[in-house]
Amino acid sequence: MKLRDTTSGDLLESTINRIIESDYERVANSGEYVFDWKLERYADVYKISLFLSENEILGLMSIDDYPDETRINVNLIEVGNANRGRGKAIDGIAGCLLAFAAKISFSLNYNGFVTLEPKAELVDHYRSKYGFEELSYLMFIEGKKSSALINKYMNNEEE
């Protein structure tokens, strides 16, 4: 999984792992996150870090598996403060997390079907940036679009 250093343009190898209990306290005390991630304890929460600096959490994702609906739902994603907005040091963190959700969906035989509930103002951006489409109150991605997202963010191939 590759992230990009916004200054040098270099690709940075990253790793995504399930969060461990002690991470919740670290996240809360880091000053990098505005959401209370302890509230996500009931869900599957993953953290993304640089391969060479696994202690530093760059972003977090909470997901749920809905087997009866053959989908993975993204409950919450938050990229750490240092990597948000114009001054961000590293690019592609949320994309990597979404690609990881798509990979889980494929592995469960859901054809890469991933959903999220968008803020109305962000619908166009989720569509253009990641390929999500609207379906009722949710947005979804599946099949070739999910595969393209994985190739772009996890294998670093061009779309």
Binding site: F35, N75, E78, G85, I93, A94, L116, L122, H125, K129
Partner: peptide, 8 residues
Amino acid sequence: LAEGFVFP
């Protein structure tokens, strides 16, 4: 925001 968040 879309590059940094999926809101609950």
